[in-house]
């Protein structure tokens, strides 16, 4: 029972990070119809950028201040990189066949990965000094690592901020409008191009913080981008264009991964944790191709 609770709680917390990254992915898909296969690499870049900022800052100031500033810096750099990526690589692809656009994102994923390895090398790096104390906190009889708890808090906080942005700000509403009916939004003076750029910016920011949190849990190396790739099962489950779906899907996949790792690893040693979400995705696709909350895109001519 303790093992179950432990897996359950950390699963939810891990899942909240997936949810955050998936939210960014869904946003790009909703607003511009681009299936972004570079999401894992956005996570990777964010993680390394934050690590670099943190290590530069921590020499001169307290740990937590340095980390918070590093996160803010990651958000800002993410915003800029997102706008640039859209402008340089995707703007020209507007209106091109969907497959061509997907190939561009595949190309981007290799490009980003290469850049990260050139700048930061391929060795595993960790956030040192540790940001979160290593002693676990005991919740309801099970010990939970503090890094999980804080990751959960951070991911949730950022998601709430994003949701408020969509709900209560002018550009947030206009982004949703554009996702619903681009031509009608255009007729009201909403710039679709700027909406795409914003979507990429937000995706970069979400992925950056996601990568930072994952890096704090496991250390930073190539495998963070594989975790980032978990957005695919997440969004397939939740629905490609549903924000609530991304959140529920993220947490579901977090749980699934943890339970698979905890209970099945004995039978299928090594790797079941990584594969389980994808097996789940394939099976799920057979039954509900639009996910739990996705809607079929209605093309109006």
């Amino acid at each position: 029972m303790d093992l179950f609770l432990q897996l359950f709680i950390t699963g939810i917390m891990l899942g909240s990070i997936f949810a955050l990254v998936a939210l960014g992915w869904v946003l790009i898909y909703k607003c511009s119809g681009v299936l972004n296969l570079a999401m894992g690499e956005l996570t990777l870049i964010g993680g390394y950028v934050c690590l670099w900022l943190y290590q530069s800052l921590v020499k001169t100031m307290p740990l937590m201040t340095a980390f918070l500033l590093a996160i803010v810096g990651t958000l800002i750099i993410g915003l800029i990189l997102g706008l640039l990526t859209e402008r340089i690589f995707l703007r020209k692809m507007i209106g091109e066949p969907i497959l061509a656009v997907i190939m561009v994102t595949v190309g981007l994923s290799f490009f980003f990965k290469g850049m990260v390895f050139i700048i930061w090398d391929t060795d595993t790096q960790v956030f040192l000094p540790r940001v979160f104390p290593i002693e676990p906190v005991v919740v309801g009889g099970v010990a939970i690592g503090q890094v999980y708890i804080w990751s959960f808090v951070a991911a949730m906080l950022l998601m709430v901020i994003f949701v408020c942005f969509f709900k209560y700000t002018r550009w947030g509403l206009s982004m949703q409008a554009c996702a619903d009916d681009e031509m009608a939004a255009l007729s009201l003076g909403v710039s679709a191009k700027f909406v795409y750029a914003l979507a990429w910016a937000i995706a970069f920011m979400a992925a950056g913080v996601g990568g930072t949190l994952l890096g704090n849990i496991n250390g930073l190396n190539y495998s963070v981008s594989l975790l980032g790739l978990l957005v695919l099962p997440v969004v397939v489950f939740g629905g490609l264009n549903s924000v609530p779906g991304a959140i529920v899907g993220g947490i579901t996949i977090g749980l699934l991964q943890n339970f698979a790792g905890g209970y099945l690893d004995g039978y299928f040693p090594g790797g079941i944790k990584e594969i389980a979400p994808f097996i789940f995705m394939v099976v799920f696709l057979l039954f509900k191709p639009y996910g739990l909350w996705g809607w079929e895109r209605i093309e109006r001519v």
């Binding site: 002018r170 509403l173 949703q176 409008a177 619903d180 031509m183 009608a184 939004a185 007729s187 009201l188």
Partner: peptide, 24 residues
């Protein structure tokens, strides 16, 4: 401002949110 034929509201926004997007 053109009002496109076919009553193209933003389905997933409320009526008031639709109006607010009009004021973009």
């Amino acid at each position: 401002f053109q009002i496109i034929e076919g009553r193209r509201v933003f389905d997933h926004l409320t009526v008031e949110e639709n109006l607010l997007v009009g004021a973009h």
